[in-house]
Amino acid sequence: MAVLVTGGAGYIGSHTVAALLERGEEIVVLDNLQQGHKEALLGGKLYVGDLRDGETLDKLFSENNIDAVIHFAANSLVGESMKEPGKYYHNNVYGTLCLLEKMNQYGVNKIVFSSTAATYGEPENVPIDEYDRTSPTSAYGETKLAMEKMMKWFDTAHGVKYISLRYFNAAGAHASGKIGEAHDPETHLIPIVLEAALGKRPHISVFGDDYATEDGTCIRDYIHVSDLADAHVLALDSLRKGSDSAIYNLGSSTGFSVKQVIDIAHEVTGREIPVAFEQRRPGDPAVLIASSQRARQELGWDPQRSNLKEIIASAWNWHSNHPNGYSK
């Protein structure tokens, strides 16, 4: 039996593929390579194509004995989603509909979904709990929530069981040093800070230093990408054991400030990291942290790389050896 990983050549997807390969799983990857990289795949059978292409999905499901899906494929830039919501609904929501319909057609009834804590919007509580209100403040978060709701109804109607994993910021790189984070454009804090350390950008912009936090900068969750990969594998195991559909948060439960990230990056790299303080960005909450208590209790998730210095050091190992990402 094979596991289909959509978006498997992307950042978190490729690390999950690596985790699955380590335990001997047969892997099929579907990726349109819009943001993914062939070089990020340490194994598996790659189909280059789009979720919305029925012929590609028919070929993939008919040629492989797939028993479960891990679904990463999606557009994921908050700012872009506000300017081009149609793009996000068509790719994320319609793409997921195409996938679920083909899963049902071919009798595949288990899916692990890479969701986002952006489904919550402005948090009611900190840390955020799975039972808190969902009120996304971006088109991106809204599409992810719509995808979750679609899975709920496919479960009700067709018995397609799902586990949705909501989290904020993946960071770090694989212990082998072979795969890491390479986006164009880059929008995530830790790689942007490391680009500044490498001299690839003149400074790191800090949007607001007057928040109601200990050092005045925003606090966010940062989880090592390999710990996130482990959570997806545990969710797959849970579905294979016959668990019901569920939603879990994945978080550090404490969080780290922007200034902490910059200070530790300076310590890890030994390089100056110029900082430019700018005005707050509209809609940036002071603190975004997700509680992972349920995932720990019910999935047995036990993050092994939660130390911020370790996370940044693994990212630095990748970026310093791959300053141009996967480009030769």
Rank of each mutant, 00 (worst) to 15 (best):
Q260S: 05
Q260A: 03
Q260G: 09
V261Q: 07
I262H: 11
I262E: 13
I262R: 14
I262P: 14
D263T: 06
D263N: 12
D263A: 08
D263G: 02
D263R: 14
I264P: 06
I264V: 14
I264K: 03
I264M: 00
A265M: 07
A265K: 09
A265R: 08
A265D: 02
A265G: 03
H266E: 11
H266S: 03
H266K: 15
H266I: 07
E267V: 00
E267R: 12
T269S: 06
T269P: 00
G270P: 15
G270R: 15
R271G: 00
R271T: 02
R271I: 00
R271Q: 09
R271V: 06
R271K: 10
E272W: 06
E272N: 11
E272L: 04
E272F: 04
I273D: 03
I273E: 06
I273Q: 01
I273P: 04
I273G: 04
P274A: 07
P274W: 14
P274F: 14
P274S: 07
P274M: 05
V275E: 14
A276C: 04
A276N: 11
A276P: 00
A276L: 11
F277L: 04
F277M: 01
F277P: 03
F277Y: 15
E278I: 11
E278Y: 13
E278S: 00
Q279W: 09
Q279N: 12
Q279F: 10
Q279G: 11
R280T: 10
R280S: 03
R281F: 12
R281V: 15
R281H: 12
R281C: 00
R281D: 09
G283K: 09
G283F: 07
D284Q: 11
D284N: 08
D284G: 01
D284R: 04
P285D: 07
P285Y: 09
A286S: 10
A286C: 09
A286R: 02
A286K: 07
V287Y: 05
V287D: 06
L288M: 14
L288Q: 06
L288A: 09
L288T: 13
L288S: 08
L288E: 10
I289F: 05
I289K: 02
I289R: 00
I289H: 02
I289E: 04
A290Q: 04
A290P: 01
A290Y: 01
A290C: 05
S291C: 10
S291I: 10
S291A: 11
S291D: 14
S292N: 00
Q293H: 08
R294H: 01
R296E: 12
Q297P: 08
Q297F: 09
Q297C: 07
Q297A: 13
E298M: 07
E298A: 01
E298K: 10
L299T: 12
G300K: 03
G300A: 03
G300R: 08
